[in-house]
Each structure stands twice: as C-alpha cells, then as structure tokens.
Simulated assay, not measured.
Amino acid sequence: MAHDLCLFLQEAEFPWRVLGKTLTQFIERLVNSVDKNHRINGNVSDYAYFENKDQIVICQGAVVEPGAFIAGPAFIGPHAVVRHGAYIRGSVYVGEGAVVGHTTECKGSILLPFAKAAHFNYIGDSILGYDCNLGAGTKLANLKINHKNIILALDNKKLDTGLKKFGAILGNRAQTGCNSVTNPGTIMLPETILLPNQTALGVIKR
C-alpha cells in the first residue's frame, strides 16, 4: 500500500494536485483493493465510532482507541495510532506509524509514515511529510476568508492552485511549535521549524 501511495504522489506535477477529489478517488481505489472481510484489523476498540465503515481500512498493528471517530473513505496504515477523541472526517490516508491524536481533526489529508499530530491539531486538505511533528494546538488553515482560490507565490510568479481548500504541505521532519498556525497554501520545506505562537504564510525555508 505504501508503494501505491508513492506512485500516486510521484505522478503529480505539484504536490497539491493530489488533494481534493483526486485524493478521495485514490483512497477509495485503495480501500476497494482490499477484501471486504479483511479491512478492519489491528487493535480496534469496540468503543470507536465508524461512518461508511465499508470504505475504511485499518491495517494490522494499528491502534484505534475508544472514542475515536473515523469516516470513510480512510486508510489507517500499519502501527498507526488514532487516539481517543480523534476526528477523521474522511478522505484521509494515515501512513505507517503516524499518529492522529486526542481532539485532532483531520480531513482530506495525507500523513506520511511517522508523522505526528498528537494533540489538539487541525489538519485540513494538507500533506504531512515523513516524521514531521505538529506541536499541540497547531492549526493548518485550509480556507481563505473570502473563499477564493489559493494563490501561491513561487519563483516570483503567482500560481493559481485551482483549489479553494488547501491547507499546508510540510516536508520531511518539519516541525511546528505549540499554538502555531499556517495560512492556506503554506509550504514548509524539509526540516524547517515554525516557532510556537507564530503564523506562517508562503514558503518557509531553513
């Protein structure tokens, strides 16, 4: 399954091209490739809540704690953890060993292996890179106040993403401090840091 995700990401001209309906369709294909009788595995609490359960895959070794809510289509990878009070609203891919924590809300997003959103986070239409970490209270805002398309400034040029909902893309091992916020369309390059209580906009470099 990780190989499928890798190919999916490599096919995109820009990383944000995989978001929205494209991501939903990819996860649906991934889920439907798994036998219906073998989609829910791992250590799943009887007190977790599921919506559109036939469109959810939970891999061997994953943990879903009591009180977690998962709506399909969703893919929860091996050894991932979905903690009590987590809210996965659909069209979410959680990679191997990744964490969706207490009161973290996630929709339309990809968490690559070992990405962590462990405490009070909002992840909307975003991609979290390998082993990146969101500090407690980090919000990845995904919608402009005027509801217009997200425009990026790259190489001194303006680029219309074609998306009205686009949160952030965090490179591998990027980190945010507690109570930080990224504006819609923020890109954090690998190993960059957003300090606590700070607001990010545009491309964040080392």
Rank of each mutant, 00 (worst) to 15 (best):
I70G: 02
G95Q: 07
N41H: 12
I58E: 02
G67R: 03
G72T: 13
K53G: 01
V34K: 14
I40D: 00
P66I: 03
A86Q: 08
D46H: 11
E65Y: 09
T104M: 06
G77F: 08
V82P: 04
V57D: 01
I58P: 10
S45N: 07
G85P: 10
E96D: 08
G90H: 02
Q55K: 15
E105Y: 06
G101D: 09
V63N: 11
G72D: 10
E96Q: 12
H84V: 11
A98I: 10
G61C: 06
A80N: 09
V63R: 13
N37E: 15
S33E: 13
K53I: 13
A71F: 04
Q60N: 15
S33F: 07
S33P: 05
E96R: 11
F75W: 15
G42V: 12
V92E: 03
I27C: 04
G77E: 01
N43Y: 14
A71D: 09
T22F: 03
R39A: 10
E65S: 11
V57M: 02
Y49G: 03
P73A: 07
G42S: 11
Q55N: 14
S91E: 10
Y47R: 12
V57K: 00
A68F: 07
N43H: 14
H84E: 14
F75Q: 05
E96F: 04
T24N: 11
V31P: 07
Y87Q: 12
E65P: 03
F75Y: 15
R39M: 11
A86K: 07
P73N: 06
N52Q: 12
H79T: 13
Q55E: 14
G101I: 00
E28R: 14
I70M: 05
E65H: 12
T22N: 15
P73E: 02
F69T: 05
I76W: 05
Q55V: 00
L30Q: 13
V64F: 00
Q55D: 13
I76L: 03
L23A: 07
N37S: 15
K36C: 10
T104R: 06
H102Q: 07
G101H: 04
D54W: 02
F50K: 10
E28T: 14
E51H: 10
C59P: 00
A80K: 02
V31S: 07
A86N: 06
I56H: 03
A48K: 12
V31Q: 08
G101Q: 02
